[in-house]
Nucleic acid binder design. Structure first.
Length: 711
DNA sequence: GTAGGGTTAG
């Protein structure tokens, strides 16, 4: 570590005029039949260390005129070329008796470019100062760039002091690298202060400032600075535009995106591959998927980032199947995915329940030495958990070297979804023990864990701890979890009181959670009141109607059920169609309620009939109270039979060998009757069945479900 | 011989 005092700036600065000037290298060599231009020419075309060593040897032997200059050139090659060798550079440097400033800068630059530690470049820097040289406008940017790369803010600040003392702070290169240092270390105010301090600023300074704001999570500020830049009569170039576009992506502001696109056209900013990628990303993040596709197709040049941008953008828009289609297209072109691609693919798998493909990615990562760092590891944990393989998720999680808040949260949310509330909570305490701070999302996991297993007191305590101990502000999701927790536990009055005391306006999810609790506990009166709140907030959606009609049906109030149905018709409210997915041999099959479009639909429905017959023999009786209609019991039963998860399960039964576990993902909540049916199937057909509904997992085995019928 | 760029997580 560099201590500011260890660099004797005072001595250097005050005594620089009288500092001992190193003797000049031996210019008068007796033996100079080697032509200097020839050596320099050979160096220019040099492509390997082997070749370089030959040149070096011949120079030592023949000692041409200006040996120092030639050594300097050789050093540049060793220290800076991709074919170079820093060890060789170091010993070569040591062989130069009296290095000049340029030579010092070269060795410092060499080590600051590639070394994982700062020590080495700082060592040469100190030596240079001891020699009586002052840092110049080249020295400091080299050092500062290394500090930025290694996030070494302490050392960087010490260098900053030198910049001030030497007056180099106002050099635009020094200033820009200083700004970048503070930006990557998160000190955005320091960046702005440096920018404001002196009038020496160019397009790079503006771009660095904009990028700093964008990366620190202040995209609005970034755009503000961009507009100011226009007022100062500067025109953005490709680099500035890329940064501005990424700020716009973060804002998700399509109007702004169009304005920037127009700016690009009007100012003839070149559409290089960076700008193209940034545009594709911006259109996706701002929601114009079609235009993003169009741009992508028209791009004259595409690289891996272009593909990653479109894949991750689609994932972010919830277009998981499309994302996988693009991934396949990319593979068909012979392009190898990198870690960023695979994170997007894993995310799609997680959402589609595509376990087979997810496993393939896991293998691919292992085989191809893909950087299995935080991003990939966390995405794997999430994928396994969301695909129903909680044990695999835990295995990946346990094997991870560096776990962060994302890893812990993924695992906690995973446990919560699988109804393993105690595991989730014990992992949460482990997290605090090892000193990883939870954030808002962690608490969503913790609170939903409590809710799924009915740990009311635990939940209340964690909710309070959130602000008291961790200084996190509860958001609407956290209030939602609490309403859910209290409501399910039957504490409906407390839940309603809780909603009244919320500092945020309750949204549809909050009222929906309470209404759901009314359904579980058969509270008709309260339900009616809540349903009205919900209908005010979203009259066009079916949630309130469906829950209300279920509540009436449970109370056998068929006339009210009919009224709700009429009203739905009158207001043209469409029911969200139930949809279930099952993956077989890497292909995701999708079923809607009553779907007959599947090629094997006939077999599937025949299987379903057979299943129901067998279950009835085993004592199953259909529970029809959750069906909307007041129609003959038989017909209701028929409606139930067509629920999408049953189609998916029947398809799984006829398409896989006995005892293969079935994994189904459903977009809505599982209804009571389907839950019972699935329990029966797991026993009668001896199948493990894992169903993920919109809230959580149900592991069916031997006639029982992991949720203990509490969901 | 110096500086600013796009894509990734719960």
């Amino acid at each position: 570590m560099l201590r500011s005092s260890s660099i004797q700036m005072e001595r250097v600065i005050t005594s620089s005029s009288s500092a001992s000037i190193p003797p000049i290298a031996d210019l008068s060599s007796p033996n100079h039949h080697h032509h200097l231009p020839l050596v320099l020419h050979r160096l220019e075309s040099c492509k390997s260390m082997q070749e370089l060593k030959q040149i070096h040897a011949s120079v030592i032997k023949s000692r041409p005129l200006q040996t120092q200059l030639v050594f300097s050139k050789i050093l540049s090659f060793c220290a800076l070329s991709p074919f170079g060798d820093l060890h060789y550079a170091r010993s070569l440097f040591r062989s130069i008796q009296t290095p000049n400033q340029h030579i010092y800068n070269t060795i410092i630059r060499g080590f600051s470019n590639s070394s994982k530690i700062l020590e080495e470049s700082l060592f040469f820097y100190r030596e240079m100062l001891d020699y009586g040289f002052l840092p110049d406008n080249f020295t400091l940017p080299f050092l500062l760039k290394a500090c930025a790369r290694l996030r070494a803010i302490r050392e960087g600040k010490a260098i900053h002091v030198h910049a001030v003392k030497t007056g180099l702070e106002s050099d635009v290169y020094v200033k820009n690298t200083l700004m970048r240092l503070y930006a990557v270390c998160g000190e955005i105010d320091a960046v702005q202060r440096l920018f404001d301090k002196t009038p020496q600023r160019d397009l790079v300074s503006w771009t660095t400032l904009i990028s700093g704001y964008a990366k620190m999570g202040f995209p609005k500020e970034a755009i503000r600075v961009f507009l100011e830049m226009g007022d100062a009569n500067l025109i953005a170039d490709e680099v500035t535009i890329v940064v501005v576009l990424s700020a716009c992506s973060k804002l998700g502001d399509l109007d702004l995106g169009w304005r920037i696109h127009r700016y690009i056209d009007e100012n003839k900013v070149r559409l290089d591959v960076f700008v193209g990628n940034a545009l594709v990303d911006m259109y996706l993040k701002c929601g114009d998927v079609e235009f993003a596709y169009k741009l992508f197709e028209e791009m004259p040049e595409r690289n891996i980032v272009s593909w990653n941008s479109i894949i991750s953008g689609l994932v972010q828009q919830g277009e998981f199947k499309e994302a996988l289609v693009m991934f396949r297209r990319m593979q068909a072109k012979g392009l190898e995915p990198d870690d960023v691609t695979l994170v997007g693919v894993l995310n799609s798998c997680a959402n589609l329940g595509a376990l087979e493909l997810g496993k393939w990615v896991h293998l691919y990562v292992g085989r191809n030495r893909i950087k299995a760092d935080g991003f990939i590891g966390n995405a794997l944990v999430d994928m396994y958990a969301k695909c129903g393989s909680i044990d695999q998720a835990l295995e990946v999680f346990s094997s991870m070297q560096c776990k962060d808040v994302y890893s812990y949260t993924a695992m906690i949310v995973g446990f919560a979804m699988h109804g393993k509330g105690e595991r989730a909570l014990s992992l949460f305490s482990e997290m605090s023990r090892v000193g990883i701070k939870p954030d808002e999302v962690t608490f969503v996991g913790v609170l939903s864990a409590c809710s799924h297993v009915g740990l009311v007191d635990e939940g209340r305590r964690h909710f309070e701890d959130m602000s008291r101990l961790y200084h996190l502000h509860p958001q609407i999701e956290h209030y939602g979890c609490m309403v859910d927790l209290l409501g399910r536990a039957g504490l409906l009055e407390e839940a309603e009181e809780f909603i009244r005391s919320m500092p945020i306006r309750p949204d549809a999810f909050i009222w929906g959670a309470l209404l759901g609790a009314c359904r579980i506990h058969g509270k008709v009166k309260l339900g009616e009141r809540i349903a009205n709140h919900l209908l005010e907030l979203e009259p066009e959606r079916d949630g309130a109607y469906v829950l209300m009609s279920n509540i009436y049906a449970s109370a056998s109030r068929w006339r009210d059920v009919l009224k709700v149905r009429k009203e739905m018709k009158m207001r043209k409210v469409k029911k969200t169609p139930g949809c279930s997915m099952i993956e077989l041999d890497g292909v995701v099959h999708e079923f809607r309620m009553g779907d007959k479009s599947h090629p094997r639909a006939r077999e599937i429905y025949m299987m379903l009939d057979e299943v129901i017959q067998r279950l009835k023999n085993e004592g199953y009786v259909a529970q029809t109270t959750n069906v909307l209609l007041d129609v003959a019991e038989e017909e209701k039963e028929h409606a139930l039979c067509r629920h999408s998860e049953r189609l998916a399960i029947a398809f799984g039964l006829i398409s896989t060998s006995p005892q293969t576990p079935l994994r189904v993902v459903k977009n809505l909540r599982v209804c009571n009757d389907c839950h019972t049916v699935t329990k029966f199937i797991s026993k009668v057909y001896e199948r493990e069945i894992v169903v993920r509904d919109r809230n959580r997992f149900h592991h069916f085995r031997g006639g029982l479900c992991s949720c203990n019928d509490f969901w």
